[in-house]
């Protein structure tokens, strides 16, 4: 059976896996974005809170994802839970870091001007600082998404959803006639998804980055 025949015969399963893969990544990204930006907003003003937040999140990143999921299984069991937790944690790092960098990078004279014309702290954050820090934050989100695409494949190890199942099945039956096709289909699926997501981010950037600061 060549690759195309394989795709033809298994497209139903592949589509389901791809959809679940994308949906898991998307949902975890939403959660990671919210948490990451909040952490950034809380931490960026203080030197030590900022470094604490970035060190903690980058420490998480040094844990191999397989190990992380393995560690989570005894605590939360198999299935969706370890996948979601692991993905969210990994997604945090680029978002927290870029939020802090972005918010700290806002020109101090603009913050001074915002204060000077009588903007309250909240108004300053939402009307000036976050909009100006948004491009780097969005970059963080984009990087995180790419990373999660790959990590989500590992989730199949914990019986999680997604294209990882295809890859793991292939690896488990290495030598059988469909093994290579399975690994290939899973991998290509992930790449295609990653490209689609990236295109979506370009669009989101167009729509949400104010025209005055678009590069």
């Amino acid at each position: 059976m060549n690759f195309w025949d394989y795709l033809g015969s298994r497209h139903q399963q592949l589509l389901t896996d791809a959809f679940q893969h994308a949906s898991a990544v998307f949902q975890c990204m939403v959660v990671a974005t919210v948490i990451g930006v909040v952490i950034g907003v809380v931490a960026y003003r203080s030197e030590w809170a900022g470094s604490l937040a970035t060190t903690t999140t980058s420490t998480i990143l040094t844990i191999p994802s397989l190990a992380m999921i393995g560690l989570l299984i005894p605590i939360v069991g198999l299935g969706v839970a370890p996948t979601v937790i692991a993905l969210t944690l990994y997604g945090l790092l680029p978002i927290v870091r870029n939020s802090i960098v972005g918010l700290r990078g806002v020109d101090p004279s603009l913050v001074d001007a915002a204060k000077g014309i009588g903007m309250s702290r909240t108004a300053r954050l939402f009307r000036v600082e976050l909009p100006l820090a948004w491009p780097p934050i969005l970059t963080g989100i984009r990087v995180a998404t790419q990373m999660l695409m790959g990590i989500a494949a590992i989730a199949a190890y914990a019986s999680g959803p997604g294209l990882g199942n295809e890859i793991f099945r292939g690896i488990a039956s290495l030598g059988s006639k469909n093994a290579l096709n399975q690994v290939l289909a899973g991998t290509l699926g992930i790449i295609v998804l990653a490209l689609l997501f990236d295109a979506a981010y370009v669009l989101i950037g167009r729509l949400t980055i104010p025209r005055g600061i678009r590069v």
Partner: peptide
Amino acid sequence: PVKLRRKVGYAIQSSGLFPHMT
């Protein structure tokens, strides 16, 4: 201070305009 500043105009070097607003 927020109330005070709304009654006191403030202009600085390099204008301090917000680049993301018209």
